[in-house]
Structures are given as structure tokens and as C-alpha cells.
Design a binder for these strands. Sequence first.
DNA 1: ATCGGATGGTCGGTCAGCCGACAGATCGGG
DNA 2: CCCGATCTGTCGGCTGACCGACCATCCGAT
Lengths: 230, 230
Amino acid sequence: MTPADSAGLLANSALFVELAPTALEFLAQRATRLSYDRGRTIFRQGDAGDSLFVIAEGFVKIWVSSSDGGEMVLATLRSPDAFGELSAVDGRPRSASATAVEPTMLVALDRATLLDGVHRHPDVADGMLRALGGLARRITEQTSDLVFLDLAGRLAKTLATLAERDGRPDGDAIVLALPLTQTELAEMVGGSRQSVNQVLKTFEARGFLEVRGREVVITDLEALVRRGAR
Amino acid sequence: MTPADSAGLLANSALFVELAPTALEFLAQRATRLSYDRGRTIFRQGDAGDSLFVIAEGFVKIWVSSSDGGEMVLATLRSPDAFGELSAVDGRPRSASATAVEPTMLVALDRATLLDGVHRHPDVADGMLRALGGLARRITEQTSDLVFLDLAGRLAKTLATLAERDGRPDGDAIVLALPLTQTELAEMVGGSRQSVNQVLKTFEARGFLEVRGREVVITDLEALVRRGAR
DNA sequence: ATCGGATGGTCGGTCAGCCGACAGATCGGG
DNA sequence: CCCGATCTGTCGGCTGACCGACCATCCGAT
């Protein structure tokens, strides 16, 4: 991947849309490229590290863990999403861990480059501010969902969101070929694996979806959205 | 309150520490001042509005509500804390509501001023980025607490945090004279009023604290912190 | 001083969701 | 293509926490 490729990628990410070509070039020339095998850790909660990553290809999960082994998945991301913004912005330790769920290629920008970019090109600042704002909004919504919705509601909402982003239309239905196990799905909604499996089955019984091995075929998105509404 | 007073206040807030005098003046001259009676709504979730507020005096709670009447308190703030950053940064509707819990005076900066400031004074951009980063970190922690900690753990942690910020030392103990009802305390930790009351009593029985009407006297902060650790 | 609405304290009944356990299905590396 | 490891599906017991209900107390306003 050449710097020109990086520039094209960065221009796609929500962070740097509508960035002037000079600003884009400034960033692209200082970007580094990394690749990770399936299952590889990109960084760990508590680590030092100040890079921001933009996904060129692959699938990444962002998660936190508790001292007694529990895990919670905060987000699943694919190209052209970005992550690692927090440490890049404030220089403090990673607030969560990142793992490549599929073979993944990343473009990395370090803190110095980013701050430099912010100072030289105000549009970069705008992009970063919008990105952090979006992040804060998403987490806020996740927090209130944990309080206001029951497990089935949270699962319905999560599936509906995944369907919109990752779904492959197939007639009326939407096929979700997620690289996620039910355990990981459970960690996304803050529930146990067993309960998620059970809810999935009730959704199937009600005709909202079909579970086919690792695939979930959503047959009634409307109903799912309704079930996940507050 | 004069623009000079505003400048002094803004300089105190975490947002604009170490800001050059010229940048500070730029903001202070464009700031407006507002006051709210106890119980007054500052803005509501879903409203249009693009101002950022810095608290000059008083006590503000930030909260979200569900369609069926539930409420969750995301944060309680006092001088020189700031809020409303999200809409100020991205121009989208308010992600939460803000209410003055005590008589409150605010200094307001609107989106146009802020973006202008970001472009003219890179240090303003730094401050905003740090502020949003801190916000995202706090909410992330709150989310994982909701998943990993039980009600008693969340309450212990919340009380410990409040003690650090709002506590008045009294010998070995720390007196918390919160303008919060137990219902509001429950909304802060995502529990019911009755359960919070019950947990409070078990903490009292174990000698962690004493409940004296609206006041909570923390006698064993260490124990509380331990109970709230993951 | 008095009154009414808000707040605090407490009790059981009920239930969503956790957990351990186990069998069968499926996956993917060699 | 094979085999161990991982993942799915399901059961039943257990319990943290919610919820309605009720009374006592407090506080601010008249």
C-alpha cells in the first residue's frame, strides 16, 4: 500500500471527509501501515500508546474486561471506521482493548502527527471533534440501553444495527454473516451466552429471523427494530 | 458578571486551562451569562441547541429518559465543570437533558464562537479534544460498571467519587451534603429507589457510612472504594 | 402553627437473567 | 480428511433486583 492509497483510504473515513488535499497528503505521508492475523491483539486496555487507526480492511472488536474475567464488547468496526482516538487525543492509556477478529490491515497516525495536523489544518480538528462527539453519543446510547432495555430489547437493537451496516440483502431478507460467536454477541449486549441463545430462539419462533449456524437471516427487520425501541 | 469575570471563570475550567490570554479574551467577550432557579430545565434531550455551558456557580444534573418515564442521571456537575459540548461540537440535537438542581449561573459559548475559536487558536481545539476525550472515557467506564458491578458496587463507587469531589472532611469522616434525593442517587447508579435505600442501610450496618437525613457521612472510604473496585 | 406533597424506610411477592452442566454440531489446522 | 477444540442448544435451580404497597417523617409554603 502506497501513501497515495493511504490518502484515498483516509479520505473515506468519517474522520477526514471533505479534507483539503494538502491536509490529506500531510497525514497520508506520515501514516504507517500495519496488518494483523485473525485473533491478534492490536492493543490492550491500560497500555501506553497514542496511535489512531483507520481500518483499511478487516474486522476489529473493541472491548473492556473486568478483573474477574468478564468481557464486554463496546464496538465492532470495519473499513473505513477508525479507533484509538481517545489515547491519540489525550495521550492517556488505552481505555479499551482492540482485537482483529478477521485478518486486518490498518493505517496508523500517531499523536504527534495528529496534533500537528490539528494545528496546521483546522479541518483536521473539525474531523477529530466530530469523531469524538460521535463516539460519546454512541456510548451514551449504549449506557442508557443497558438501563432502559431488557436483554431481548438490547439484542434486537444490536442485530438491527448490524443488519443495516453488515447485512447482505437476499430478497426480502437480510443475511448477516458475522464473524462473531454467540458468546461475543452476548458480550456486546451485556448478557450471558445462554440467555442470548434463548432470546435468539424466541425471535426465531416469532418469525423475526432464522439462525443458520453462524449466519443470522433477518426476515422481519421492522419487528426487530420495534422490539429494540425504547 | 463582567467579561473579565467570565475570562477568569473560563480559565479555571478544565476546557481552557493554559489558554493564551488573547484566546481567553476572544472567548470571554463572546460569552453570555445565564442564571437558573432550582429545578429549572436548561435544555432537553432532543432539543436543537448548540451552546456549551461552563458552570460559574450551582449544581447541574445531566440525564436521559426513556419513553416509559424512566430516568438515568449521567453526571452531576459543579463549577468549573462544563457541559453541552456534544451539540456545540457537532451541531446535532442534545443527547441528554440538563437541569439546575440548585440555583445556578452559567457562562455560555455558542457553536459559531467555539468553531471560530478552534480555527484561530489551536489551543482551544486542544482543550475541546481533551474535554471530549474525558467525557468519552467517563461514559465508557460507566457502561462497563453497569455490566461488571452489582448494584452495591456501583453505589459504593459513586459515593466514593462524590466524596472525593464534594465531600467536606470532618475529622476522619467525610460529610456529603448532597442536594440529591435517594431517588436521584438511584437514577445515577441505574437501580430502584428501594434497592438503593436497602444497600445504603447495609453499608451503614457494616460501618462504611452513616445516613443522617439528606446527609451521608462516610466513615470508611477505603472500604467503599474496595467494594466498588472491579 | 399547620397542612400537603415530597421523601425515606421497610416488607414480600415475583421474575428476568445468571450459572453449572452436558450433549450434539461444527469448525479449522495439520 | 480427520480429530480435538470450540461453539450451539437446552435444562433446571438459584438469586439479585424490581415493583407495588404502606406508613412515618420531613420540609417548605401559607
